[in-house]
Each structure stands twice: as C-alpha cells, then as structure tokens.
Design a protein around this nucleic acid. Structure first.
Lengths: 183, 183
DNA sequence: GAAGCAATAGACCAATCGGTCCAATGCCGC
DNA sequence: GCGGCATTGGACCGATTGGTCTATTGCTTC
C-alpha cells in the first residue's frame, strides 16, 4: 500500500491551486513546490500526469462538498431551510480563507476542450451534487424535487462565480437573504 | 486612424478562444492563427500583449451582452417578463453555436491572480451588467430593484456555468421554465 | 545482511510559451 | 516618383511547460 500522505498532499495542493488559477494556469512545478515533492512522486502516483491529478483533485473536492450537503441538510427541518443553511455554510467556508477560491469543478471546466476526460469528470461531479440535493428535496417532501434541486444548484453556482470575481462572500450573503425570505 | 478590421479580428478571435479554453488555455499563436495575422500586428494594436487583448475582448463581449440586455428589456412589459426573455435570448444564442461558450467574463476570471488588471476588468463588466439590469428593474417598477438585479444575474451566471459544463442549453431552458412560473 | 519492491529525487528533453525586435510592405499626400 | 508613417511579417529570445527516464533511497521480509 502506498503512503497516503504524499498522494494526498498532491491532491490538496493541486485542488487549492487549480481553484485559484484554473487548470491551465498552474504548472506542475508550482504544484510540486507547494506539495514539497519531486516530479518523480507525481508520476508515480498519477502516471497519466496533470490530467489524472486534476481529475482526482476535482473528485476529492466534489466528495467534500457532497458531505457538506448531506451534513447540512441532515440538520434542516425543511428543504428551504436546508437550502439556506447550505448557502450560509459555503459562505462561511469561503469567508474563512484569505482568498476566495472558485468552485472546484469550475477550475477544470475550461480545460475540458483540451482534456476530454475532465469534461466527463465535471459532468459527473455536477450530476452527483444535483442528485444529492434532489435526494434531500424528496426526503423532505418538496413538491418538485428535481426543479428545486436544479434551482438551488444554479443559484449556488452563480453566487460562487460572482463571489470569486469580487473576492468577497457578499454574493453568498445576498443569496442567503433571498433564500431566507422564502421560508 | 488604425484599420479597425485587424484589431477587430484579434478581439473576436481572442474572445471566442478564451470563452472555450480560458485565458491561460489559449496561446498567442492560436489566436494569431485564428485571426490570420502575424505577431507583429498583435503587439502593434495591443502593446501590452495578451493581457491587454484579453481585457479588450472581455469589455467588447461585455458591451455586446449589455446591448442584448437593453434590447430585450425594451420589448418587455414587466421586469419578470424581461428576465424570462433575457434567459431565452441567451439560451438561443448559446444553442446557435456548435460549442457552448462560457460567459466571456468567466474566461478571464481564473487568470485574475496572475494578471491583476483582469480582476478589475471582470469586476467592471459584472458591475455594468448588474447596474444595467437594475436600471430596467427600476424603470419597470420592480419593488426591490437591487435585489431583483442580483438575483437574475446570479441565476444567469449559474445556468451559464452548468450549460457550459454540459455543453447543452438545457440549464437555460430549465431556468426559463422557473422564471416563467413567476409571471 | 541480502533481495526486492515502493517511492523519491531530479537531470534531461522537445515543444511551446509570451515577448522583443527590425526589416519589409503598402498606402498616403505631395 | 518620393518621403514618411502605419502596419505587417516573422525570425529570434530566454523561460517555462508537461513529460520521460534512470539512479537512488528506504523499508520489509526473509
């Protein structure tokens, strides 16, 4: 069994950097420097190189957000309240960092035309999130779970893009205000 | 006065390519090949190089979308109806191309940490859009024009990101369905 | 301690990057 | 035809890119 810390360090470093500068904006040397590992380690753990690392990083961050969704909705008493709490949780998460990082999927999205596998990865992760939200919508008796899931996902994506552009979580607090009014 | 066609060709080529692969994902050689111009022309029209070209391309595309907003809202009988029409117009625009291109601002957003000027450009263009929507919201007697403008901008951004990921305008048609229900 | 595998370390590669520079070209008023 | 400026054409540059390859290290199992 391989030492998990090295592989993990690579994934974390890659995810952080990609979310700030995008897939094409980050060089392997920068990732390796951040992870404190030589090039040999990268190609040992990810033989297909940058693309495979980006895929792993995106799925890792995607799973993290899905856990966040599950944990937050588990505490909610209604879907609308859960939606608000998710928005507030992401807002707090975003605000806790010195820089506002983009949605992890966004980071690899623009590299999709260059690396077809990343397109599939992006669709997979987005699909998982929507399904996850839909699951909770159904569980809480939302009348149109599919529509509600898309609507929330769409708003969160929009707020995340704007927050990234402004380097501020103001968009999330504004969205939270909007969601609170619906309860 | 400089010949507008060369400068314009560069801007159009750059905008198209950036919207597909992102700022860092496109090389100057690719832009020049698409525009059919040599490198000398680029640095004549844009002495500061790639960054200046990207800024011009983003502002150009930003102005195009703002004209689209104005033209669409001008035909609407209410803000909510205008919002729906904008969504449908962008949806049709997106669907008319073989590839779904990202929002022009998104293209340069992830390059912002590398090129500080692009961060300002992105904020400017987003700000113009929001103000433009707000202007129409006020004009049509929307009770909370600021909130309404942010809300629409946010939803459109989200739908655009998802549409880009899925390479389909399904997200826009879904958002249109949601907006139609509010009228 | 020797064999053997997991993992690291980094030299090295061709290709491409953004950018600089200057000669050549085309078009203008004269 | 000529001077002069706007623009083009493209060679050239150092730096960096993603990727390959091999030597070495360190642990584990006999």
């Amino acid at each position: 069994m391989s030492d998990p810390t090295s592989r993990d360090r690579l994934i974390r470093a890659a995810s952080n950097l990609f979310r700030q500068k995008g897939y094409s904006g980050v060089g392997l040397s920068e990732i390796l420097k951040e992870a404190g590992l030589p090039k040999g380690s990268l190609y040992y753990h990810f033989p297909k190189g940058k693309q495979e690392l980006a895929e792993a990083a995106t799925r890792w961050a995607g799973a993290w957000l899905e856990r966040l969704l599950d944990a937050t909705f588990a505490q909610a008493e209604s879907f609308d309240q859960g939606a608000l709490m998710v928005c507030e949780t992401i807002s707090a998460e975003v605000a806790s960092q010195t820089h506002v990082s983009a949605c992890p999927v966004l980071s690899i999205l623009q590299a999709a035309p260059l690396e077809p596998q990343l397109q599939i990865t992006a669709q997979d992760v987005y699909g998982s999130w929507t399904k996850c939200i839909e699951k909770h919508a159904k569980r809480m008796g939302s009348p149109q779970p599919e529509e509600a899931a898309f609507s929330l996902h769409c708003k969160l994506q929009g707020a995340w893009v704007i927050a990234f552009a402004q380097q501020s979580n103001a968009a999330f607090t504004q969205l939270a205000r909007e969601l609170r009014a619906k309860i």
